[in-house]
């Protein structure tokens, strides 16, 4: 136990936790509203969408790939699903069924292209982002769907308690979706053989082939899962927004990528954890929220996010370099 703690103390996650907690303490004193249950619930609701996307993206990064197209995938999934729900009497099951199927299918297409073309995944998926998005804009003419079915617009939520002013504390489908997404990713990465194969593939692709792992199948799992999450997250987002705009999501890729990389996932593959991703997301959310509560003008928020991202990436790079040097020293004395 003590050993495990010590091991944890040296990880990126531990440092991230420290920074997050420090920031939380600072904001609790510096602002009136930060340290309230209501604020926490609001944050959970509004960060459910990037959070669920991050839960999908970390799997792709762990497998040594990169997916940029997920916002376009989500846009298509939500548009088709809500369109169908408006025209045919499909219920919750049908709605989610369509969104998940569309998301997963587009993810699988990404996997086929990345594996088949043998071109860097970032390039393939940037191209696919534009293809998907362009097609969506072309087919829909950019039209917004303003009326959602009533049952969907009302959403799923439960009042669980009241604060001293009788304002309700609400548990909603966004929070459930977010928690579910992280649990699923954790199970996939840590409790299934496929998850371990994904990590192995990201760590040493050549060796993965040599021990006989099926790279195409693994990529289909990784990108398919990302697409699946995009489908799930798209509905969660549509429910909050109460409209479906074909251009509402594209452009938010980098926020998600920032959270995942902040969480310690490596763009070179093989590295990344669910805990790290959660912390990365939390840090980003708290930071952006804190700046708003402190009354800082909103364009500063983006600038700040960028700076934090840069600092995070460089500390990670620096850590890695130190580790590599240490290894090199070991090798040096061994030979």
């Amino acid at each position: 136990m003590r050993n495990a703690l010590r091991r944890f103390g040296r990880t990126h996650e531990a440092r991230l936790l420290l920074v997050t907690v420090a920031l939380m303490i600072f904001l609790s004193f510096a602002t009136k509203n930060f340290f309230t249950i209501q604020n926490a619930l609001d944050l959970l609701t509004s960060y459910a969408f990037p959070g669920m996307m991050a839960a999908g993206l970390v799997v792709v990064l762990v497998a040594g790939g990169l997916d940029i197209s997920f916002t376009a995938v989500a846009s298509i999934a939500q548009y088709l699903a809500v369109l169908a729900a408006n025209h045919y009497g499909i219920g919750w099951l049908g709605l989610f069924g369509i969104a998940l199927a569309v998301g997963t299918a587009l993810g699988l297409l990404n996997a086929l292209l990345v594996t088949g073309l043998r071109i860097a995944s970032i390039i393939v998926t940037i191209a696919m982002l534009n293809v998907y998005y362009g097609l969506l804009m072309f087919v829909t003419g950019g039209d917004t769907i303003n009326s959602l079915p009533d049952w969907f617009a009302n959403g799923l939520s439960w009042v669980v308690a009241f604060d001293s002013h009788q304002n309700p504390y609400i548990l909603n489908m966004q929070m459930i979706g977010l928690v579910l997404a992280f649990i699923m990713t954790w199970l996939l990465l840590n409790r299934t053989s496929v998850g371990r194969q994904l990590r192995a593939l990201g760590g040493n692709p050549e060796a993965a082939k040599r021990v006989g792992f099926n790279v195409l199948r693994l990529n289909m799992v990784a990108y398919g899962y990302m697409g699946f999450m995009a489908g799930l997250a798209s509905l969660v987002q549509a429910q909050v927004a109460q409209t479906v705009m074909p251009n509402a999501l594209v452009g938010r890729e980098l926020d998600v990528l920032a959270a995942v990389v902040l969480g310690g996932a490596s763009l070179f593959g093989g590295v990344g954890t669910v805990l790290g991703t959660i912390l990365g997301l939390a840090l980003l959310a708290i930071l952006q929220n804190g700046l708003i509560l402190l009354g800082v003008a909103s364009f500063w928020t983006e600038c700040f996010t960028g700076i934090v991202f840069l600092v995070a990436v460089s500390t990670i790079a620096w850590e890695r370099r130190r580790q590599r040097l240490a290894i090199r020293r070991v090798i040096g004395t061994a030979a």
């Binding site: 053989s193 371990r196 194969q197 192995a200 993965a208 040599r210 792992f213």
Partner: peptide, 27 residues
């Protein structure tokens, strides 16, 4: 192999027993 073909980001145990990761099942 000359380059050993190990997975640096997995544990020693997983590398040795990597065959147990084949297939589709719980770890």
């Amino acid at each position: 192999y000359q380059d050993l073909s190990l997975f640096p980001n997995l544990t020693v145990a997983e590398n040795i027993a990597v065959e147990r990761h084949h297939g589709l099942h719980a770890v």
